[in-house]
Design a binder for these strands. Sequence first.
DNA 1: TTGACATGTGACCTATTGGTCACCTATCGT
DNA 2: ACGATAGGTGACCAATAGGTCACATGTCAA
Lengths: 113, 113
Amino acid sequence: MTYWSPIVGGVDAVFKALADPTRRDLLDALFAEDGQTLTALEERVPMTRFGVMKHLKALEEAGLVVTRKRGREKLHFLNPVPIRLIHDRWVSKYAEPWASALTELKTQLEDTP
Amino acid sequence: MTYWSPIVGGVDAVFKALADPTRRDLLDALFAEDGQTLTALEERVPMTRFGVMKHLKALEEAGLVVTRKRGREKLHFLNPVPIRLIHDRWVSKYAEPWASALTELKTQLEDTP
DNA sequence: TTGACATGTGACCTATTGGTCACCTATCGT
DNA sequence: ACGATAGGTGACCAATAGGTCACATGTCAA
């Protein structure tokens, strides 16, 4: 069951969105400076405005980016919620057991005289 | 600088590998039961052996799966290291500030009389 | 040794994706 | 009102990815 999901296209959309290096670069750009406009982001990436627009659309549909319009410009903000959900519900599943296995090993070693 | 990398194709390969639902299913299958063979995994997924092979190859090149040969069979094991690296170096960057922002807010609220 | 079994390779096709462009709408400043 | 600026749409193309198949190699078990 899903309690609340800002992820329109589901988990799959988030993973797919993160799969492209350009989109990760855009997230990095927004992480460095939030609320940037399309034309500002366009300069950060070797691509025409239209390519950037498509990537931003993918990020937005995945819920990784939220937007607000101010006059004729569109401001883009990073939304960490989906990536946090991915982490909590999926990444931790694989990463944690390994970490705890290490911890157990450590404990075991320390407990052995 | 990279200290040690089991990720052959780099971070990008890992993200790309995780982007496909079939490959995530395969990881789930290996998470449920480690060391499965190709034909065993084939039954878990609506696809021919060859499709599964390609997906496993992608997972292996991303370092998410490691293999061992036993006679004529090839055993597949889940490797949590790359996903852990992704988490530590990338996911946490976006997820953590948000979490700490919440924590700060909480602290602030509690400190206000 | 012979047949069944487990996996591997390369060609092949189709659907999807990344990227560009011509053209269009809306808003700003003067 | 005007040109300049910010963003949007749909068509289009090339590259890649997902999937299947014919065929081929290595390994087990009787």
